[in-house]
Design a protein around this nucleic acid. Sequence first.
DNA 1: CTTGACTGCTTGATAAACTTAGCAAATGAT
DNA 2: ATCATTTGCTAAGTTTATCAAGCAGTCAAG
Lengths: 129, 129
Amino acid sequence: MNSPHPDKSRAQSLGQYLANIRTTKRMSLREVEDACDGVVSNAYLSQLEHDKINKPSPNILHALAEVYAVPYSTLMTKAGYIAETQSPKKKSGRHAQVPTFATDDLTPEEEEALLEYLAFLRSRKGGSK
Amino acid sequence: MNSPHPDKSRAQSLGQYLANIRTTKRMSLREVEDACDGVVSNAYLSQLEHDKINKPSPNILHALAEVYAVPYSTLMTKAGYIAETQSPKKKSGRHAQVPTFATDDLTPEEEEALLEYLAFLRSRKGGSK
DNA sequence: CTTGACTGCTTGATAAACTTAGCAAATGAT
DNA sequence: ATCATTTGCTAAGTTTATCAAGCAGTCAAG
C-alpha cells in the first residue's frame, strides 16, 4: 500500500479545469473571447480561471464548452449546477494501447490529470512558432 | 384578465407556467419555500410568477422542478437557457466522449511524455485489478 | 533603449438576481 | 367586535455576475 488516501474523484475546480484546457489548446484569453463571439470577455475568463466567480451563468458555460469542445454537462457539473451523483462509467478491462490519445480510453480523472500535466509541460517550454 | 391567446397556447411564460402549476397543486408560496428547503423564498417565487425576473439561476429552477415534479429541462427551456428544439442532438449522432486531446496538436515528445505519465498513473491505482 | 504588440490580470462600475422585512386583504376563532 | 394566522405581494436593500478600461510584464524588432 503506497497511498493512505486514494484520491477519489479529486475533481479540480472549474477554474483549474478551464485554465488547463485553455493552456493545453494554447489559446490566449482574448482568443477565447473572440472564438466565442464575445460571449465571454477575457477579463471574466481570467476571473473564472482563478475561481473568483461562484456561479457563472449557463450561457457562459455553454459558449466555453463549444469553444473548448468539452461536454457542456461537465462544466455544469463543475460549476455545481448538477449533482455529481452520476457514476463514472467503470469500464473494466480496458487494456488496449493508447494510439494518439483517442481518449475513449481515458477516465475523467485521467483526463484531468493528463491535462494538468500537459499544461505544466507547456508552461515550462516556450512556445515554438 | 386572462386573454386567450389563440395563436400559441404553448407559449406560456415561465412565470405563468410556474403559477399554473402551483395553483393546480394548491400550494401556497410559503409551502413551496418550505418544500424546497428554503432554496426559493416565497417573495422570490412571487416575483418569478409575475415575470419580474428574467433569468433565474438553474439552482432555483432545479429546486422548483423537484418540488413540482416537472422536468428540469422544461423549466430551463422556458427560462430561455435551452433552445426549444425538440431533439437536442447535433450533427453526428455518436459523439461519445470528448476529444479533448484528439483535436490537439501534440508533439511526439509530448505524446510520449503523456503516455509515460499515464502509465505511471495507472500503475499507481490500477494495480489491484 | 524605445516602441509596439502581445500576454495575463485587476479594478471600478452597472445591472440583475435574490433576500429580508413588511404590507393589506382575506379568513377564522373567540 | 378583536385577535391571530395565512394569503399574495412589493419596496428596499444586499449580493453577485459581468464588462470596459486600464495596468504591469514579456518578447521582438527598429
